[in-house]
């Protein structure tokens, strides 16, 4: 039970931190915020498997005895989510750099003012 409370508190803090960063003006901090929120979500996913039981693969093998095991499915899900998160974070950082190259700033306020010309302006 204590584990649940600790995890709930940790998750709450992570989401708070992520939301705080997400609302900053600096694009890099926004990306940090997104990363922290997605990592907090991964942590949340792991806790969804519960806290009872031991390591799934080891239980019942090599003399570890056949006790209750953790739900291995959530851990498989988290692996997938981490890989996707890695890819998207890398892309978001590259995009941030491109934004800096194009606008000369990563301040969101300045970006909004810079974009007064709303025409899509595809090059011909």
């Amino acid at each position: 039970m204590t584990a649940s409370f600790v995890m709930a508190a940790v998750l709450g803090l992570l989401y708070a931190l992520g939301t705080f960063l997400l609302l900053r003006r600096d694009v890099v901090r926004v990306v940090w915020g997104i990363t922290i929120i997605s990592q907090a979500t991964n942590t949340y996913l792991v806790t969804m498997g519960g806290f009872a039981g031991s390591v799934p693969v080891l239980a019942g093998h090599g003399g570890h005895g056949g006790g209750a095991v953790q739900d291995p499915l959530v851990q498989a899900l988290v692996l997938t989510a981490i890989v996707i998160g890695f890819g998207t974070t890398a892309f978001a950082l590259v995009l941030t750099y491109r934004v800096y190259e194009e606008h000369g700033t990563i301040d969101l306020q300045a970006l909004g003012e810079d974009g007064a010309d709303i025409d899509g302006g595809e090059p011909r």
């Binding site: 997104i34 998207t88 194009e102 810079d114 974009g115």
Partner: peptide
């Protein structure tokens, strides 16, 4: 096209959908 407007629009689009992805994962979990 990665011009000024395009990078800006893509930044909004990406950040929003990354947040959407995290929320979806929360709901699914």
């Amino acid at each position: 096209y990665s011009g000024p407007e395009h990078t800006r629009a893509a930044l909004h689009y990406t950040v929003l959908n990354l947040l959407g992805g995290a929320v979806m994962l929360l709901a699914v979990g």
